[in-house]
Simulated assay, not measured.
Amino acid sequence: MDALSRAVEDVRAQRGLDPRTAVFDVRVEPGPGGYVLVGEATDPAAVEELIARLAAFGAVTDRTVRLPAPGSPAEGFGLVSAAVAPLMPEPRISCTPSSQYVLGQRVEVLARRGPWLRVRGEDGYIGWLHQGYVCLCGEERARAWERGDGGEPVVSLGVELLGEDSAVLGWLPWGARLVREPDGRLRLPDGRAGMAGRGELVEVERLPARFPQDGESVVRTARRWAGTPYLWAGVTPAGADCSGYVQAVFRLHGVALPRDSDMQARMGVPVDPGPEFAALRPGDLLFFAENGERITHVALSLGGSRIIHSALAAGGVAEYDLNGRDEREVRLRECFRSARRVLPD
């Protein structure tokens, strides 16, 4: 690595620019009488710091695009208009998704590349969505949707959406947001509408009462996902990975968690699990590392040594006992690293 590339990596490392939550795709190229800094970045201060460092090597022309990129204010945001939209690490459908967003979630559009949108979700996670999954709009339109202007905002707990002839138009996953109009129709972000079939809807204003921030309530919600298959990057009962499952469950209870397990391991306060995990409360989070110390798995405590988690080894959401003798329980116990409490006392 040459000195110029090293300067880029040093700034990235020292400012903690995680590519999951920050864009710092910059490079230094030769230019007339010095160097040219090109690329894209979401942290203007990091760009300025890099320019200051590069000045030691010669004159620097800054051609870096600060994100969000300049564009139409009317299309600086988007609302997910499909039941589930895969978030990609690159602007192509053939790569492995990094997460999912569900119907009605708001995203900020950072940049565009053909039909692909580089977006930042409400959880700060950055990736690429195909524009076919998104209804573009301005910020005020997005906020109006969340307020439920013209109706009442509601959240799906796995409700069917029916057409005029009662044919099923689609299944809306847990956490999907809609607006219920005065005539009872459910309006989607792109203007389509239908009626509720089987399943359940909860008014947004009733969510705190229905899903309070206490451990026993969180456990009840988590158990309703029992049998959900394991799916890398998934966040719905149709398929979820460990951290997507935890994030989605806590989101219903008004607790915003980041997307990945290593990020979640920095939330809340540390908890001493006590002998044989006896001090853990329902709703505590447990973190595991398969190799070294980097957290790669998260589980939700049912109280004491009992946990529920979405595990590849179990094929999906299942309950384990960390004091158990099953081979998978023994292996998980060996990988335990820490516990955190994210719910209020």
Results as ranks from 00 to 15, higher is better:
Val38Thr: 15
Ala314Thr: 13
Gly234Asp: 09
Ala45Trp: 01
Ala299Ile: 07
Ala45Tyr: 05
Met88Gly: 02
Glu90Val: 10
Asp62His: 10
Ala222Asp: 05
Ala59Glu: 14
Leu172Ile: 04
Ala238Ser: 15
Gly194Leu: 01
Ala233Ile: 09
Gln105Phe: 04
Cys95Trp: 01
Arg180Glu: 12
Leu87His: 07
Met263Glu: 15
Leu201Gln: 11
His309Thr: 13
Leu103Phe: 07
Pro237Leu: 09
Leu312Ala: 15
Leu257Val: 07
Asn323Glu: 12
Leu50Pro: 03
Leu322Phe: 03
Glu160Val: 06
Thr64Trp: 01
Gly316Ile: 08
Val179Gln: 00
Pro270Cys: 09
Leu300His: 05
Asp345Cys: 09
Phe250Asp: 11
Gly239Asp: 14
Gly58Asp: 04
Gly184Thr: 10
Leu186Val: 09
Leu172Phe: 05
Pro189Lys: 02
Gly170Ser: 06
Ala238Ile: 09
Asp43Thr: 13
Ser301Cys: 12
Ala3Trp: 12
Ser305His: 12
Ala3Thr: 15
Ala13Asp: 14
Ser166Trp: 05
Glu203Ile: 11
Met195Lys: 10
Arg27Lys: 14
Pro189Gln: 08
Arg120Thr: 01
Pro182Cys: 04
Arg27Asn: 13
Leu332Val: 05
Ala238Lys: 11
Asp183Ala: 10
Ala41Ser: 14
Glu181Tyr: 01
Leu172Pro: 05
Phe211Ile: 05
Gly127Phe: 00
Arg27Tyr: 06
Ala196Gln: 12
Asp25Arg: 11
Trp128Thr: 04
Val102Trp: 02
Val65His: 04
Gly215Val: 01
Val219Lys: 00
Glu334Thr: 04
Ala52Trp: 03
Pro73Thr: 13
Arg224Ser: 15
Glu160Leu: 08
Phe336Asn: 03
Ala222Leu: 06
Ala167His: 05
Glu140Lys: 14
Arg20Lys: 07
Leu280Met: 11
Pro282Trp: 07
Phe250Lys: 00
Arg27Gly: 15
Arg328Met: 11
Glu334Met: 04
Ser301Ile: 06
Ala209Asn: 02
